[in-house]
């Protein structure tokens, strides 16, 4: 489904250029629950950004269903990302000025594919009924992440990219969110690529990509 070919990621640190990883390749299949783990600063989030089309690698190519996503125009890349993927972030990325319902509806309006039934279903599934008219700043961390998941699923994506989705949550909320993601993976056949540094989350993975001294180790 997703093919990563010989990617290299470098960044500037003052006058020095540092390499996060070099010439790495791997493949991701449909229904995979992949967890990318490793110590802080190892390049987990950069890898997720490259795979999700948000950061162009210094070298190499990323294919989504045989399409080289970085050869697309900005507009087409945005369209592909909108239609085929969903995103969940550690800091939720909710727009504070919009209500919970508007936040969820937002991605459907961006892709111009309005599906109210799907939104109702997601609200029910994620138990958001009582939160719809509220604004994000008054929600708890767990509630915010549930809203973010609902928003990520509102376009019926094939793949879900999650960047430390439980990083800002306590133990109970972390378990709740991870269970939810597992359920989505199994019931909705959604591929999940999740970045985490928390070891206890690794049990949810079907495959693990580990960073080891600048090298990727895929199970």
């Amino acid at each position: 489904m997703i093919k990563v070919e010989n990617i290299t990621c470098k960044y500037k640190n003052g006058t020095n250029i540092q390499t996060l990883f070099e010439q790495e390749s791997f493949e991701i299949n449909q229904k995979d629950f992949i967890i990318i783990s490793g110590p802080s600063g190892s390049g987990k989030s950069s890898l997720l950004k490259i795979v999700s089309g948000m950061l162009k690698p210094n070298e190499g190519k990323v294919y989504w269903q045989d399409k080289d996503i970085y050869s697309l125009t900005n507009q087409n890349l945005s369209k592909v990302r909108l239609e085929e993927s969903g995103f969940i972030y550690q800091d939720f990325m909710l727009i504070d000025e919009l209500t919970v319902l508007d936040n969820i509806k937002l991605v459907q309006h961006l892709s111009k594919k309005i599906n109210n039934e799907l939104i109702e279903e997601l609200i029910k599934k994620l138990s958001l009924e009582k939160l719809l008219t509220k604004y994000p700043p008054v929600l708890s961390g767990g509630e915010k992440q549930r809203v973010a998941i609902a928003r990520a699923l509102a376009n019926n994506p094939k793949v879900l990219f999650c960047d430390e989705p439980t990083g800002a949550l306590d133990f109970v909320a972390t378990k709740e969110i991870m269970d939810l993601l597992q359920k989505i993976n199994q019931e909705n056949n959604v591929t999940i690529i999740l970045v985490t540094h928390e070891q206890e989350n690794l049990k949810y993975a079907t495959r693990i990509i580990k960073f080891d001294n600048g090298k990727l180790k895929c199970d």
Binding site: L82, L94, E97, L106, L110, R151
Partner: peptide
Amino acid sequence: PNIDKLEKLGMSNKT
């Protein structure tokens, strides 16, 4: 910050 969020969600430059 809000435009960044919209962009990360898939809003294109053209939009």
